[in-house]
Nucleic acid binder design. Structure first.
Lengths: 230, 230
DNA sequence: GGTAATCTATCTACCAATAGGTAGACACGT
DNA sequence: ACGTGTCTACCTATTGGTAGATAGATTACC
């Protein structure tokens, strides 16, 4: 029997990783003690997402996760038989976080311009939080090398994000706070493309402010009023 | 937009994998027989770039290259001792191709709007050519997992691309064919971010036309005149 | 209530395949 | 005789993954 005195390195309370949002709360809600047991699955997903957004899917192994959590590799296979399973769960989890994010904004009845701003803020947060970029950027780049079920999960998530964004833009235009010409989904595509690329460039050049500059440009193009907190 | 019958020295648009341009010619020029010897190095780089843009850096191995070329793994190590060496050479090679691309446009005295169009065409070509995306997108996503020398090589290449783009935009504005507000390098950043993200999204969603839509939007925002073939 | 069976989650100890990489022999043209 | 480029043959570490033991709960049954 090895030392069962597990130090149980507590979950890093920092990351609000979005498109990842709100999971700290989840973890926190599961009870105080960081090594509360039963939450291994959560810990795995949490760490895996962290590494994923930092380094990409093919750049981490089960061993990395095991080491990071203080558990044996086989235990991770117990929760996620194959890496593809883990990957799919990861995407789904991020999808759920996006969902929560959207619902939260919706329930608090934020106006479109605030929703968009929140979206940008969350994205920007990834950079600060530890050199991360958004899922779409990470997995989009290695898309062809992804296991099949991850590809479909990715594609689904992508579409739902596009839909959400398009909806926000559309409502904004209706209310007169955004101005753009074509159909909302075309605009959504442009906005998300730009954000995704900007994250990558900002990170690689180690100039996060480049992301801010791009966001500012998007906002000005959309004719977003300087966001006076109404 | 694609296939505009350009007279004279038409700009390479097809397999001129950019940002990768002109290497087919190179290979072809080396003589017919695939195993012409001495050009193994070229063959390796060619294939490696191909796989890189399709699947990412961590998704291919020396064995893959060996198999694809019909050579032994050790022979590849002869030309590129470590994978990092290969990666750096790959980035430099792509940089050289970018350079040639720029010089070509410059020597044939293409106007800015044509240079920009050529840039878009080359990017778009990647998608058709085999589900590729641009280097910046591929490596930008796994940036943190890249060996150190590749990171710096990447950053350098990125800056030089940004400079080129900014220059094109600036000249275009001076000539009155582009219209945008801020400094040219800010605009260049936006354009390249957008293109980079759009490539990824278009590929993952298997809707290459999405890329075209984004390009059209960029062009219209820049006030590019419908690009009447001069 | 007490015992047995079952379930859950972890562990140790493997596995075959593959990763990147090395050593040294051999062929070949100069 | 030498340099170049390729080969065979190997190495070590790591990959994703599996088998089976075990400990601690929970449930089933008498």
């Amino acid at each position: 029997m090895p030392s069962e005195a597990k130090p149980a390195s507590a979950l890093p309370a920092s990351s609000a990783a979005v498109l990842g949002v709100a999971e700290d709360e989840l973890v926190a809600a599961l009870g105080g003690g960081p090594s509360d047991a039963a939450e291994t699955r959560e810990r795995i997903l949490h760490l895996a997402k962290d590494i994923l957004l930092r380094r990409s899917f093919h750049s981490f192994s089960y061993q990395d996760l095991a080491d990071g959590i203080g558990i044996r590799k086989a235990s991770i296979h117990y929760h996620f038989p194959s890496k593809e399973d883990l990957g799919v769960a990861l995407i789904e989890r991020i999808g759920a976080a996006m969902q929560r994010f959207a619902v939260e904004l919706s329930e608090s009845q934020r106006p479109p311009e605030e929703r968009l701003a929140a979206f940008f803020r969350v994205m920007r947060g990834l950079l600060d939080e530890g050199d991360k970029i958004c899922v779409f950027g990470v997995l989009g780049a290695e898309f062809n090398a992804l296991p099949p079920r991850m590809q479909t999960a990715y594609a689904q998530l992508l579409e739902s994000q596009q839909k959400w964004l398009a909806r926000v833009l559309e409502r904004g235009r209706e209310r007169g706070v955004f101005a753009f010409a074509g159909p909302p989904d075309a605009e959504a595509l442009i906005v998300s493309s730009t954000v995704q690329g900007a994250l990558q460039i900002a990170r690689a050049s180690r100039q996060p402010q480049r992301f801010d500059a791009v966001v500012a440009a998007i906002e000005s193009r959309l004719g977003v009023r300087p966001a006076a907190a109404s």
